[in-house]
Design a protein around this nucleic acid. Sequence first.
DNA 1: CGGAGCCTTGAGAGCTGTCAATCCGGGTGG
DNA 2: CCACCCGGATTGACAGCTCTCAAGGCTCCG
Lengths: 213, 213
Amino acid sequence: MNWSTYTINLACDMTAIITAGPPLAGVTPEHRQLAPGDCLFSQGDRAFGIFQVASGRIRLQRITPDGSTVTIHLVRAGEMFAEASLFSEHYHCDAVAEIESDILVYPKAEISSRLRAEPEALWQFAKELAGRLQGMRTRFELKQIRSAPERVLQWLRMRSGGDGVIRVPGAAKDIASEVGLTHEAFYRALAALEKQGRIARSTGAIRLIGRLK
Amino acid sequence: MNWSTYTINLACDMTAIITAGPPLAGVTPEHRQLAPGDCLFSQGDRAFGIFQVASGRIRLQRITPDGSTVTIHLVRAGEMFAEASLFSEHYHCDAVAEIESDILVYPKAEISSRLRAEPEALWQFAKELAGRLQGMRTRFELKQIRSAPERVLQWLRMRSGGDGVIRVPGAAKDIASEVGLTHEAFYRALAALEKQGRIARSTGAIRLIGRLK
DNA sequence: CGGAGCCTTGAGAGCTGTCAATCCGGGTGG
DNA sequence: CCACCCGGATTGACAGCTCTCAAGGCTCCG
């Protein structure tokens, strides 16, 4: 098992914290600044590009037949979105900035022609997609765990290196939302785990305690 | 809190109804029968193929550095898995049958050479991956909704056609696990929604009530 | 007619979200 | 150098909600 590879795979996944997947090789993106409420594209618009969130947060939503709004996805910093529009003429949902956001725009025509012309680039693109799919499935499975301490523990396990140490990037608060908890519940979970002797905390890092191989 | 408890929770999955993608065009799979507990591949094994579950259920799990097991994904009938192994020499997790399962095996060498040789097939494959990624994100977002009635309603909205009618395939019980609820909570949610006049139930179908466009 | 499985409802417990209060460390202005 | 302020970290109290366990009712089928 190659743990560094594993880390990279996860990076495609827990994007909110591990910033930035690799940009699309060989295609230089444009930047677009969005103010809260700004719309990047709407359902039915002709697809003009795929995107990556440099900073901010984008809500992908769809208006259902009965007129109500369904959130398809909340895209956070580092994440890419609307890849599927490469294979479709139009967007199938709205993309609206929740907060001030900086978006990288990869023009569809350019990406498309490049992927069509260079099978190797397409191969890499598919690889990227497959990795993100795996990551998404992992996140999904994590969500199935109802107990907050258990969920936090599993998350830590997935993020830990071979030494069982997880370096905490910035505020633990941000991790909370990543795991799908309020920060209070997250702190309580950490406290409980520490009390049980299953983790040890120090500033900027968390260490798993237990049978390390 | 023990693992068997989780197994039950984890069994909640939406794929049984939602998924069932097209098989890989132009490549004929082999079948493999697995008994409960049988291992399809292990972490570190040389990647020999990608798979689709014809029937049964496969647990993808990884042993973490501290020796504990983390479920990466529970694969259900219709779903494809281990696509990422196309881009990697080895598998990064274990695949174990939870129940008797029938697996379609697409040999890696064959898939790989076909995708390499025919850019159009690779394009389709990427399209498929992008679609699955979107679907996974949608499922993930649905999980974020805490209120059971709200979650059920959103799920119904996503599944409804333009007429706002959802035909219920078989037991409503199965839907419950798809939405990530116990069947009791699901019934209660439906009852609440009906009481509020937001849906109407009849045998075999549910109709959304509200401003249809 | 009987049974099996699904549908439905009830009661209670446990857990997380919410609201609030406190502590703490660093940066800032006086 | 120190008081002050701000945001994060932490803990407490409480309400609301879902899960669990349990008990009928209903429908289809043998």
